[in-house]
């Protein structure tokens, strides 16, 4: 029972051993440790900009206690490059014009990655539902949905 407690987790394949404050969110913990690519937009779970993948599942890091990531594997947008499926999504977002201000992008990509890992043949309506926890104010979502759909299609073809 401590105000600060030890924490050990893997972020983008790298082991981090540190301490966290009791009420510290995973978002704040990540940013305090230099993972600035994880953005905060509301800190209440209402926008999804802070989305990371924790043990394979996309979650909102602002409503996750740092301690809840103890012993877990975290993937942020900067770790996406290490995996082919991640790189494909990044490039598809770039090519489709799915990125405007880019503030939602880091979270949106993580949601898309976790979703496509589990769903191989989604249609566009399903993709819209899948990313409905990630707000975007710039694009109207169309090009984001197209970018994700293109990767899903490509994955199907290469199978």
């Amino acid at each position: 029972m401590m105000e600060e407690y030890p924490i050990e987790l893997t972020i983008n394949g790298e082991k981090i051993v540190s301490t966290a404050k009791a009420e510290e969110s995973l978002l704040r913990f990540l940013r305090r440790h230099g993972f600035y690519e994880v953005k905060g937009g509301c800190e209440k779970g209402d926008c999804g900009t802070c989305t990371v993948i924790m043990n394979g599942k996309a979650i909102k890091s602002c409503i996750t206690l740092a301690g809840q990531a103890n012993g877990k594997e975290i993937l942020t947008v900067r770790g996406l490059e290490k995996e082919e499926s991640g790189r494909k999504l990044q490039e598809s977002f770039v090519q489709h014009g799915a990125i405007q201000c880019g503030f939602c992008t880091a979270g949106m990509l993580m949601t898309a990655k976790a979703y496509l890992d589990e769903n191989h043949q989604p249609n566009k309506v399903e993709i819209r539902k899948a990313i409905s926890g990630n707000l975007c104010r710039c694009t109207g979502y169309k090009k984001i949905v197209e970018a994700i759909y293109a990767v899903a299609e490509e994955n199907q073809k290469s199978k």
């Binding site: 800190e43 209440k44 779970g45 409503i63 206690l65 301690g67 809840q68």
Partner: peptide
């Protein structure tokens, strides 16, 4: 604290005063 999706916003809004967070 189970999921955290309510508790963390409550902490930010100071609806929950400093306590033991029992995860």
């Amino acid at each position: 604290v189970a999921g955290g999706s309510n508790v963390l916003p409550y902490i930010r809004d100071k609806i929950i005063p400093p306590k033991l967070l029992l995860d």
